[in-house]
Amino acid sequence: MKRWALYISRRLLYMAVTLWLIITATFLLMSLLPGSPYNYRDQLSQAQIDILDQKYGLNQPLAVRYVTYLRNILHGDFGISLQFSDQPITKLLANRVGPSMRLGLQAVAFGTVVGTILGVIAAMRQNTWIDTFSSLFAIIGRSTPNFVVAVILQFTFAVSLKLLPIGLWKDGFRSTILPTLALSISPMADAARFIRTEMVEVLGSDYIELARAKGMSETRLAFTHGLRNALIPLVTIIGPMTVSLMTGSLVVENIFAIPGIGEQFTKSILSNDYYTIMAVTILYSSLLLAVIFVMDVLYQVIDPRVRVEADA
């Protein structure tokens, strides 16, 4: 247990350092962005610009602004949006993080679970019609953009069958079903493909043969002995997949009119909304770092050979 505590605290320290490097790099790069946060800058007089710069602290030297910014975020103050009527950014994003994260997590969870089951069945029924069907599904799912799937789902379930809301974020869970399905197609296809390949190999291994020799049924050995070993490579792709889905898919969010952060991010970059860009970058990086950390811990749970502790 002590080793675990040490391991986790060391990892957290590394994460903090990484995050600091990302913040610094983004801050410097952003200052090199052409243009300014003010619309119609040409029509503003120098005096007006000076007043605005003073108001937002942009007249200070870069180094001073950087130190001020760091001090502020340590106190949880991410500044105000230059674009959206001086709203605090935390408040602006807080309303948008929820829907994006919820959709992302639901999509990853649903997609990988269903994909894994498909993959295992395909591997167990290798070279039969079930296997062919599952592979075909994986290829189609992987190569169809999720906004196409989104529109098809909307047409089928909202327009024709009138079972579910077509968009917006008003009906609680019911509004999340269609966007979740649309987003889950690609993780589902990826998981099915990955698990099938791994499972075929695992099912041919000696320890599976030994489990058969114990008198275990095929289904039981596939799920108790096979799956755990086949899951290891899947863990690698699940992490980044989760982050990219949690931080929002711009197109899918737009199609379903969901107030997520994907849309917010694009807007802030286009309008040089410095502090919003910073905040979204920090959010994205923190999520990615957290997910990588969780993945590393998961590896150790799944595969005892990479565990930090030598003995129990």
Partner: peptide, 25 residues
């Protein structure tokens, strides 16, 4: 046959390095 395997007739395999499941105690 599953009832026989491992119960009445058991088998030991050639390569002990790969015969055990690496992720199970």
């Amino acid at each position: 046959m599953r009832d026989v395997r491992g119960n009445d007739v058991a088998m030991i395999f050639q390569d002990p390095m790969t015969s055990l499941n690496p992720t199970m105690k």
